[in-house]
Design a protein around this nucleic acid. Structure first.
Length: 278
DNA sequence: TACACAATAT
DNA sequence: TATATTGTGT
């Protein structure tokens, strides 16, 4: 068959040639996956070892746009790969598994997977995965107002080493309504004319500390750090060190960790699905 | 003192 | 609701 015969209009060249790293220990599955991805006109690199995948990713961070990985692999659990990728680089990862149990899927999502596909994968599901790459680019910027057409910086150029991440990524407008604009880091707060009874004699130059927004990216780093440490050794200080995020404090992490414990013990409901489809 | 953790406040 | 702050024990 003429596999490459689909010639969609190439007005948008982006999805064409998107660099995908496919990981699956089963050679048959891997071959199928690779073929399907190629049929979507992506540029595919395939490996049957998670270790190799990690090595490839670490050696050249600009080489891939997206990772799609099986969950069950002998050399390294897919979740582990997911954690490490989430911690060390900012790439969308799609998990792949025959196991469709809610618990397992939830685990993947909770660990930072941007999608979770069930085998056998259909090509229809792969045609759209480039959206995760786009989504990630938008995710570090406010997108409430469309007039910000400022292009996001390409993560490939200036991100060679763990750049200090900044906290201003608040992209979560979960409700379709107009969300009140979050105050960013600008210290322009001059008058707070409420007639409240605050007797704080705070210094005039002390601006209000901005609240940390636990964006998907930030949360991914958090989860990756927690899992790397192990849940029992994951204490705020160590998590903070591993995350290596500028201006994030131990208290911030502690607060988030508190919630995370609740989530893990399923005491509170998890808003992960909101993360998925904003 | 520094920290973790739970409770409470905003 | 999400995150910050406070309180308490180690």
């Amino acid at each position: 068959m003429l596999s490459g015969a689909l010639r969609m209009e190439e007005r948008d060249q982006f999805p064409v040639g998107m660099r995908v790293l496919a990981v699956d220990d089963d050679p048959v599955c891997l071959k199928v996956l690779e073929t399907l991805l190629r049929r979507c006109q992506y540029h595919v690199t395939a490996t049957n070892q998670a270790i190799t995948a990690l090595k490839l990713l670490r050696e050249n961070r600009d080489m891939f746009d997206l990772v799609i990985s099986d969950v069950h692999m002998p050399d390294m659990d897919g979740f582990k790969l997911l954690e490490l990728v989430g911690l060390e680089m900012d790439l969308p990862v799609i998990m792949l598994s025959v196991n469709g149990e809610t618990k397992t899927v939830m685990k993947g999502i909770a660990h930072g997977a941007c999608d979770y596909l069930l085998k056998p994968v259909r090509i229809e599901e792969l045609r759209n995965i480039w959206q995760h790459v786009v989504r990630r680019k938008f995710s570090s910027r406010e997108r409430s107002n469309l007039e910000f057409s400022k292009e996001c910086n390409k993560p490939s150029s200036a991100d060679t080493e763990h750049g200090p991440n900044q906290l201003t990524c608040g992209s979560s407008d979960q409700n379709g309504r107009i969300s009140k604009k979050r105050k960013e880091l600008h210290s322009e707060e001059v008058e707070e004319g409420d007639d409240n009874d605050f007797q704080e004699n705070d210094e005039p130059s002390a601006a209000k500390k901005p609240r940390v927004v636990w964006s998907v990216e930030l949360h991914r780093k958090f989860v990756a750090a927690v899992n790397q440490l192990g849940i029992d050794k994951a204490v705020p200080k160590r998590i903070l060190e591993l995350m290596n995020v500028e201006k994030l404090t131990r208290e911030n992490v502690a607060s988030h960790l508190q919630v995370w414990h609740l989530i893990l013990s399923q005491i509170i409901r998890v808003p992960f699905l909101l993360f998925m489809s904003s």
